[in-house]
Design a protein around this nucleic acid. Structure first.
Length: 491
RNA sequence: GAGCUCGUAGCUCAGUCGGUAGAGCAACGCACUUUUAAUGCGUGGGUCCUGGGUUCGAUUCCCAGCGAGCUCACCA
């Protein structure tokens, strides 16, 4: 580390370096390469939290047999009192207290203890007991130094509160704010629950290109890049949709993909330029089947992750097992009764403007205007509308699904309409994908497909108001000090 | 992209109706062998985001910039 934020940090770093020398002088390695513990802290707590003080400590007349254990962790609190002291170690989001006294660890051992700082990693072995306030504690017999914190920990009571620092230095946020850690643990559980849901239904998990010559499958502006050896312009994908349907043509009747999409658009509490999308396709299913599947999926994931389908979000209590279904027309007319004569696109705009943010409880909105749905199959009795639905929870869209358009002639016509829109200035209109039309020409069975925003689902299931709270490293402007100075000089 | 708000010690925050700043934690020293936001005594630590303007004097007022948060727009 060559740059410091301040003289304070430079001084602290140098001081910690001296402490490392002193620790090495006591016979410890500065950066040992392993430590064998008998338990992780969560394992140990689970096993021994139930034991009472009497079971652990025994009585003065009859001491209990000692339970010898060893653990490793980061020091999150340390208190010395002369020739003894307590410290709290943290590992995997849980904490355990240790008690170190000179007559138990020896003079060198206690000298090492006095050289420890908040944030250091250590390993300890000893026996379990409960203090007189009842806290499960390791009575340390041997201290092993593992790694030094060369920089200051955040304030121990408030943690790291600065939102920007929490995003930029997530490594600090994660160990300093256990709530933050918990969000990402839950996110992993959400992904696991989704995978087991689809695996149990005979879906195949697949991966399709992130770099695509034509960015298709959604209306959005892509990021552009270039492959040098092939001298080929490529786009980061805005959706996997067209590739997944090619797979269904290929006979993979049920596929799903959980992966990143990239859209070169604005950033907000609900938008990050890269975000994680679940897309799944099921041959021989239509959008009504997907509505049922969606309700099952969301409720089951909630139950597996939170143990309940009820979540608190943004001041609302939401039951993810209690859904309503409305056609888009019904939903709009409820809010805007004067919109009887509105065209499809107008209806859609009214919906986005007046209805979407009011849909707090889980709601499926179905039957979309054809002109805003270039990849969806029309309703058999009504070519103005397509078999498409989106679902909304907490006031925003979480998923989008439809019966897939599988008529290559009609698909080509829709693409051409989009091209016309593009030429008229709509740079988010879909591009022509000849190979996709060719794939359809080989015969796509009737298929239902759906995309679900994993980040937004995670927001709902963790009560996070901002998408940045559920993405480990959200995109922020770079902090360039020289650029800052140049910028300042222009005035 | 637009509007509003914010930027003070490593962290969490006060404060200055314009006279170059404080607390707690963290750090350093001393005391303390069952503490747990340990305690007591003492010490050090700041380009008050950056640059300009107004002023005798700016961290404070004004302008511009940088970064962030919220709202809106675009979108999922």
């Amino acid at each position: 580390m060559s740059e410091f934020e301040s003289e304070f940090e430079r001084g602290l770093f140098a001081l910690r370096q001296e402490k490392l020398d002193a620790i090495a002088a006591l016979g410890q390695q500065r950066y040992p390469n392993q430590y064998r513990a008998t338990h992780t802290i969560p394992q140990l707590r689970q096993a021994f939290d139930p034991l009472t003080a009497e079971q652990l400590n025994g009585t003065p007349e009859q001491p209990a047999p000692r339970i010898e254990v060893s653990i490793a962790g980061r020091i999150m609190a340390i208190r010395a009192q002369g020739k003894a002291g307590f410290a709290t170690l943290q590992q995997n989001g849980q904490r355990l207290q240790i008690y170190v006294r000179q007559d138990a660890v020896g003079e060198d051992g206690y000298a090492l203890y006095k050289l420890l700082d908040m944030g250091d990693h250590i390993g300890v072995s000893g026996y379990l007991f409960r203090t007189r306030t009842g806290e499960l504690t390791i009575h340390v017999e041997k201290l092993t130094f593992l790694s030094k914190a060369m920089l200051a920990m955040p304030e121990k009571y408030h943690g790291l509160a600065d939102v920007e620092l929490r995003y930029r230095q997530r490594y600090v946020d994660l160990f300093a704010n256990l709530d933050s850690r918990e969000v990402f643990v839950k996110r992993a559980r959400i992904l696991r629950a989704i995978r087991s849901f689809f695996d149990a239904r005979d879906y195949l998990e697949v991966e399709t290109p992130m770099m695509q010559p034509i960015a298709g499958g959604a209306a959005a502006r892509p990021f552009a890049t270039h492959h040098n050896a092939l001298d080929m312009d490529l786009y980061l994908r805005i959706a996997p949709e067209l590739y997944l349907k090619r797979l269904v043509v290929g006979g993979l009747d049920r596929v799903y993909e959980i992966n990143r999409n990239f859209r070169n658009e604005g950033i907000s509490t609900q938008h990050n330029p890269e975000f994680t999308m679940l897309e799944f396709y099921q041959a021989y299913a239509n959008y009504h089947d997907l509505m049922d599947l969606t309700e099952q999926l969301i409720a089951q994931v909630a139950k597996e992750v939170n143990g309940t389908t009820v979540v608190e979000f943004n001041g609302h209590t939401i039951d993810l097992a209690n859904w309503q279904r409305l056609t888009m027309r019904e939903a709009v007319l409820r809010a805007c009764p004067q919109a009887q004569q509105a065209t499809g696109r107008q209806l859609y705009e009214l919906f986005e403007q007046h209805v979407e943010h009011t849909l707090i409880q889980p709601t499926i909105i179905y039957d979309y205007p054809t002109e805003v749905s270039p990849l969806s199959k029309a309703k058999p009795d009504d070519p103005e509308h397509v078999e498409r639905f989106e679902f909304f929870i907490g006031g925003f869209e979480v998923g989008n699904a439809f019966s897939e358009l599988n008529d290559p002639v009609e698909q080509r016509r829709r693409f051409q309409d989009q091209l016309a829109a593009r030429e008229a200035g709509d740079d988010e209109a879909h591009q022509m994908d000849e190979d996709y039309v060719r794939a359809l020409s080989y015969g796509l069975p009737p298929t239902g497909g759906e995309g679900i925003g994993i980040d937004r689902l995670t927001m709902l299931l963790t009560g996070s108001r901002s998408i940045r709270d559920v993405i480990l490293f959200p995109l922020l402007r770079r902090q360039d000090k020289s650029a800052q100075d140049e910028g300042g000089a222009t005035a």
